[in-house]
Design a binder for these strands. Structure first.
Length: 199
DNA sequence: CGTTTTTGACCAGCGC
DNA sequence: GCGCTGGTCAAAAACG
């Protein structure tokens, strides 16, 4: 049975990503273990299927990948977070006022699963960690990251599979309103490769 | 010393 | 209402 869900009223698309769509720029590969390119056979994890409300799709590529094209309904709280300046005006973060629910904002979200011994894959963007949580029925904590770019509210969370600690689940939420970090000298190549990702 | 991470507390949503 | 759970905040600590 699927989890209650934000998915029920939206269209869902699958991403049986070809391996080359997900592969990271060469520059970044050195930070990854060899096993990153040597996936082993694995089976879809049942609890993940229900968590995301999506059947996993296998491919013969290097990755299990799945996701959605769609939107989620945000909560009705406005003025949260440091990219919103309401709380600098005397409303403390923990005493935020509930504002009238604006038009519901929906954010695209998708996730994928890779085999890697590093938790945070270098995707060309700069992230700041803002939380970590141990979720039920898992032994590895889930980490929450936010894009450091101003006016960019993209978030991602990273967790490791309890059943197979070699696997990392990365979930992106939102869409970047800017290009990946300009610090990398071959950022053009990065952008070229990653554009498949974010479009 | 500016930026990022850590970490416990807080919050909202859900099920009962 | 209460308790559980996942997501977020923010102060302090760590980092470079």
């Amino acid at each position: 049975m699927l989890n209650q869900g934000f998915l029920e009223d939206q269209q869902i698309s699958f991403f049986p990503f070809p391996a080359n769509m997900i592969s990271l720029p060469n520059q970044n590969l050195k930070t990854l273990s060899p096993s990153y390119h040597l996936p082993q056979h694995s089976k879809p994890e049942q609890h993940l299927t229900s968590h995301f409300g999506l059947p996993l799709q296998s491919s013969n590529a290097n990755y299990w990948a799945w996701g959605e094209v769609g939107e989620i309904i945000s909560n009705k709280i406005l003025g949260m977070g440091r990219d919103d300046h309401h709380h600098h005006l005397g409303v403390s973060g923990m005493k935020m006022k509930k504002m009238k629910s604006r038009r519901k904002v929906r954010e695209p979200r998708f996730c994928f699963k890779t085999m890697s011994d590093v938790d945070v894959l270098d995707d060309g963007y700069k992230w700041r960690k803002y939380g970590q949580k141990v979720v039920k029925n898992t032994q590895h904590p889930r980490s929450y990251y936010r894009c450091t770019q101003d006016n960019c509210r993209v978030k991602k969370r990273v967790e490791r599979l309890a059943e197979d600690p070699r696997m990392v689940i990365t979930t992106y939420e939102g869409r970047h309103a800017h290009s990946p970090s300009q610090n990398e000298e071959d950022s053009e190549a990065n952008t070229a490769k990653l554009c498949n990702f974010w479009l």
